[in-house]
Write a protein that binds this DNA or RNA. Structure first.
Length: 202
DNA sequence: CAGAGGATCCTCT
DNA sequence: GAGGATCCTCTGA
């Protein structure tokens, strides 16, 4: 088992959300929820920017009850219900007052795989976490865990890096499922680990 | 307070 | 590849 070092709060601040979305690739999400420990390697992310990006719920810097958490200081969760069924897990970035976040679209299961299978009611490893709704379900993340800080030891959810992180190539594409965002649907703000079997789509 | 629509997933064809 | 599930959020009156 590799050691995991928790990312400090600073990781989520004072940098462009694009850079953070890229840097989150290869990092480890740990959850300690519902009496179980699960961890998974992030293999696919998307950046959202409430100031300029029509695909973002907080565009154009629109403050509502739902988007409120995105305006808070980075390093916390933004979880919302999509299509009435799926809980989607995002990581808020930047300083207080700017509404930006990174959607975790796919992960590679590391620990607690049996628990993930039970939560997903799926046996096939590749089907376990290769999509944003699946990620949240497998890790036990729901809107109950909106606005949780992500950088605390023994937190419910935290993000860590492996000591001996392997190298990988990053692929870039347009984001999935945001056709309604007109020209912003063309932004190359989706990032994923090349050839990783757990990404949601080619 | 009604109506519309969605950062998805699963099933069936 | 198409369509349905399902419910919360936001809008406008």
């Amino acid at each position: 088992m590799k050691d995991i070092k928790i990312l400090p709060k600073e990781f989520f601040l004072k940098r462009n959300v694009i850079e953070i979305a890229k840097d989150l690739l290869g990092k480890i999400v740990v959850t300690q929820l519902d009496g179980g420990y699960t961890s998974a390697r992030i293999v696919e992310t998307e950046a959202y920017d409430g100031a300029t990006d029509k695909a973002c719920h907080a565009f154009p810097n629109k403050l509502t009850r739902r988007t409120e958490v995105m305006f808070k200081e980075g390093g916390r969760s933004y979880v919302y219900l999509c299509y009435g069924i799926h809980h989607l897990f995002n990581i808020v970035t930047h300083e207080e007052g700017s509404a930006k976040a990174v959607l975790i679209r796919a992960v590679e299961p590391v620990k607690g795989i049996e628990l993930m299978k039970a939560r997903r009611k799926v046996e096939n490893l590749r089907q376990l976490t290769n999509g944003p709704g699946k990620v949240a379900q497998a890790l036990g993340i729901s809107t109950l865990y909106n606005d949780e800080t992500l950088y605390e030891e023994n937190g419910l959810i935290y993000i860590g890096s492996e000591i001996d992180n392997v190298n990988f190539e990053i692929n870039i594409s347009t984001r999935i499922g945001v056709d309604y965002a007109e020209e912003d649907a063309m932004l190359p703000w989706r990032f994923y680990i090349k050839d990783n079997p757990y990404i949601s789509k080619k």
